[in-house]
Amino acid sequence: MKKSFTSTTRFRLAKSSFFFYLVCGFSLVTLIPLFLILWELIRKGYAQFNPSLFTEVAPTSMEAMLAHISGAPIPGGILNGITGTILILSLAILFAIPLGITTGVYLAEKQDKPVARLVRSLSDLLQGIPSIVIGVIVYIWVVKPMSSYSALAGSVALAIMMLPMVIRSTEESLKMLPTSLKEAGLALGGSYATVVLRILLPSAFSGLFTGSLLAISRVMGETAPLLVTVLGATTVNWDITRPVSAASLLIWEFYNDPNLAGLIWSTSLLLLLIILGINLCAKSIAKRWKIQ
């Protein structure tokens, strides 16, 4: 037995360190796609990154083709997409965040009551629904009765996608507060509503804020549900009952029209940078908050 100990030990150690390097190797390879994607977008998109990107609407296929033939850069920008995204997102935030926070407070307060448990499971269920399925449901609910694609329909779809994330982050940041906080507030004679609104929610603010930011960044790049709810538009439109465009929808349109393909990269780059920026921002807030 002693012999088998020593003879295999070196082999076992070698195997162990080989595995370690394997893990490190595979982990490093996992980093590559993100940088490849960023590199590709920057390399191809920086040339189109100019002021007109933010001030002009997307060109028609014809305009782009003419520019292409004469060797000029594709004219126009993605103003209609940017304004559309802003419109749809603001509406979605308006729907999802108040409802999500209120529900989150309910869950944090009621903990294990049957209704709370049901709502918690349903929120998990909502989170798992593929975005395209939410899109078609909203099509049936909103687009069909209004007999028009609309910014409103798109924002309902995005709001449904944001809801579970807002609910979860509200509940969790409230649960992390010490119970003494609530008791102290009540002991000072505050009403239940005052204690929740004036003490608990402000104390949990950074958690709520981070959760909401992450939810926004998660739905910002969504394309599939918008495809079947807001359709797209060639002009800037602030009317929520009419079709609008969105940055992600424009990428889809450019992708489908070879004449406009040149605009894909700058648009994607802009969208990705904003999303990654919000993500990093949310993470750093969360980190600073945890240290305190």
Partner: peptide, 17 residues
Amino acid sequence: SVVDLLAGVPSIVFGLW
């Protein structure tokens, strides 16, 4: 954090890539 950022990349950008 880099791997988490990968989760933030929109589906359509993955499609393009």
